[in-house]
Design a protein around this nucleic acid. Structure first.
Lengths: 315, 315
DNA sequence: CTGTTAGCGCCTTCAC
DNA sequence: GTGAAGGCGCTAACAG
C-alpha cells in the first residue's frame, strides 16, 4: 500500500522496511498495465554524431532523471518507413515522445500527429500543425537569427564575397540558416547568392571537399561560412593544406559552438546554440504536460542563440 | 493468435489483415507480464561526451535494431549510489544490461553481480568475477597494447623524454594505458617515469592545462602522449599558443581515433579503437545470450586496436 | 482499520 | 477446429 488506504503507520513502516531489506520493487509492467503510464519517454533522433548529440543527450538524460523518467532512445531514422516503425515500437512503451526530425516533411508530420501521443519536437520545422489533434510542442534553435548575425558580422568586417556551405540537404535547419545568410546578403545588395553557395552537410569531410572547390573559384571569396563547426574543421584543414592563411587570406565561421570549436587553429568564430538546454527543456516540458494539462496545446518556442567572435575573422 | 493454435488459415489471414488496418499492436506491458521478457536492453554509461560516445551509441543502436530490441539509456552515474539507483530502475524494465563503468571498483562490481541479470560490461576492468553468479561478459579495448605501441613508436623515432598525460583518475582504462606506457619506457631502461607523468583527463581543457605545465619543465620533453584525442587537441592548442612547432619541436599523440583527429593541425598520430564495434557486439552478444544459453557463462574478450601514424611525429 | 475481489491486455491450457 | 477460463503482478474499490 502506498499512501491511499488507511493503514496503521506502524504496520506500514514495517512493510516498507521489509521491502527495503528484500530489495522489492513493484513490477513496472504490472504498474503500467494498471496506470496506463510507463514512466518512460521516447527519444527519436535522425542519427547520432559528434559533440552536438552528446550534449543533447546529456540534457535529455538530466531532465529525465530529474523527473524520474527513463529514456528510450532510437536513432538512424532518416527514412520515413524506419521512422514510422520506430514510433510504432515506442508507442505503448512510453508516455511521450521527443522527436528531432529536421528532414521531416509536412506529409510525414501529419502521419505522426495522427497518433494520439504527447510529443515535443526539437529542431524540426513543421508548417501545418492542426491545433486540436493532440498535445504537441515545438522547440527550435533560432537558426535564422544565428546565420544572419554571423553574415552580418562578416559584412561589417568588410567582407562581401562570402561563400556559404549548406547543411544536410532537405533539413529544416539547413533551410533556416541559409535563409539567414541570404537575407543578410540581400541587405547589402547581393540578392543572387547562387554562385556563392556550395553543397555540403554537417561533417568535416563535406567541409574539406567544399573548401577545395571554393578556393579554386575566381574571384576567390574572402570568407567561408561553414554549415556547422565540424564542417568548418574540414574547411580549416583544406585551407591549411593549400597554404591559405586564416584569417588573413580567408575568414572561416562555424555553427553550433561545440567545445572543439575553441581548439581549432585559429579558434573558430561561431554561433552558440543551447544544445543541452533544448534537450533538458524538451523532456521537462513534456513530462509536465503529461501531468498537468490535457490534450490540445500546441506551441512553438524558439530558443535564442549567441554569436561568439573568436580570432578567425579579419579585423 | 500468432502461430500456435490451429486455426484455419483463412480466418487467420483476415484477422491479420484487420490488425494491419486498425494499426493494432499487442500491448508490450501485458506481453512482458506474460513472457517475462520486455524486449529491451538497458545501457548504463558513466557520462556522454564527444565523438567517442556518439560512435558507441551508434553501434549499440544498430545492434538493438538488428535484434529488434529497444534501448533504455541512462548516464551520469559516476557515483555508486546513483549507479545503483539506475540499475534498480532498469532491472525489471529490460532483459539485460550493457554497462560501461571504467571507474567501477571491485566492491561495486560485487554488488552489481548480486542482481541476477544478464550483463555485458564494456571498457570496464573487473578483477574478481564469480563465475557462477549469473550471465556475464566483459568486452574491453586493448588499451594496454595501444599505449604500448604508441610509446614504442615514439621510442623508435628516437624519443626518450616522453611526457604522459593520464586519463580520468580511478578509471581502469587509464590504468591500462599508463601501464602500456610504463612498460614500453621500462623496456628502454626508463623505469621511473614519475617526473614524466602529468595528471589529466579526457577533455581538451585538461590537455591544454597539462601541456602548459609540461613545456615549462626542464629539461623539456620532446614528445607528449595525451590521454586521448580530445586531450591531444588541448595540447596542440597550448603548443600553438606558445609558438612550439609540431612535430619539429614537440611530438604529440592521442588515443581513440575519433574523426576529428584527422583534422587537427597537423593530423594526429593516434590509436584507433573499435568504438562502434564494441557497442554493436555488446548488444548483439547479450541478446543472443538471452535466447540461447542459460546462466553462468563469464567471458572476457579483448578487442584489438590499431596504431595510426599521421604526420605529427618527427621522422 | 483490515481482508477480499475484480480486472488492466494478453496468451496458453484445457474442455468442447 | 473453436470457445472459455486461468493467471502474469499489482492496486482500486469494495465489503467486512
Amino acid at each position: 500500500m502506498n499512501d491511499t488506504s488507511s493503514v496503521s503507520s506502524e504496520k506500514r513502516h514495517s512493510v516498507l522496511e521489509a521491502a527495503e531489506t528484500l530489495g522489492y520493487t513493484p513490477n513496472p509492467a504490472a504498474l503500467s498495465l494498471l496506470n496506463k503510464r510507463t514512466g518512460g519517454v521516447g527519444v527519436l533522433l535522425p542519427y547520432v554524431s559528434g559533440e552536438f548529440f552528446a550534449d543533447l543527450l546529456n540534457g535529455l538524460d538530466e531532465a529525465a532523471q530529474d523527473n524520474e523518467h527513463f529514456l528510450v532512445v532510437s536513432t538512424s531514422h532518416r527514412k520515413p518507413k524506419e521512422f514510422r516503425a520506430a514510433m510504432q515500437a515506442m508507442q505503448k512503451r512510453v508516455d511521450g515522445l521527443v522527436i528531432m526530425a529536421p528532414e521531416l516533411d509536412d506529409d510525414g508530420a501529419q502521419t505522426i500527429l495522427k497518433s494520439e501521443d504527447h510529443i515535443t519536437f526539437i529542431n524540426t520545422y513543421l508548417d501545418h500543425i492542426p491545433a486540436e489533434e493532440n498535445s504537441v510542442e515545438v522547440l527550435n534553435f533560432d537558426n535564422y537569427a544565428g546565420a544572419h548575425a554571423l553574415t552580418q558580422h562578416l559584412i561589417e568586417l568588410g567582407h562581401q564575397h562570402i561563400a556559404y556551405i549548406t547543411g544536410a540537404p532537405g533539413a529544416g535547419d539547413t533551410r533556416e540558416r541559409r535563409r539567414g545568410y541570404r537575407t543578410a546578403m540581400a541587405g547589402v545588395g547581393i540578392s543572387d547568392t547562387s554562385a556563392l553557395e556550395f553543397d555540403g552537410d554537417y561533417t568535416q569531410a563535406a567541409g574539406y571537399a567544399a573548401a577545395q572547390e571554393i578556393i579554386s573559384t575566381t574571384p576567390r571569396p574572402s570568407a567561408i561560412m561553414a554549415a556547422n563547426d565540424y564542417c568548418a574543421m574540414g574547411v580549416i584543414s583544406a585551407l591549411h593544406e593549400a597554404g591559405i592563411a586564416i584569417p588573413e587570406e580567408m575568414a572561416v565561421t562555424g555553427f553550433d559552438g561545440i567545445t572543439s570549436a575553441q581548439y581549432t587553429l585559429p579558434p573558430l568564430t561561431t554561433v552558440q546554440v543551447p544544445t543541452h538546454t533544448i534537450g533538458y527543456q524538451a523532456i521537462d516540458r513534456l513530462v509536465h504536460r503529461l501531468d498537468e494539462y490535457g490534450e490540445g496545446d500546441v506551441r512553438h518556442q524558439v530558443l535564442p542563440v549567441e554569436l561568439i567572435v573568436r580570432e578567425s575573422t579579419v579585423p
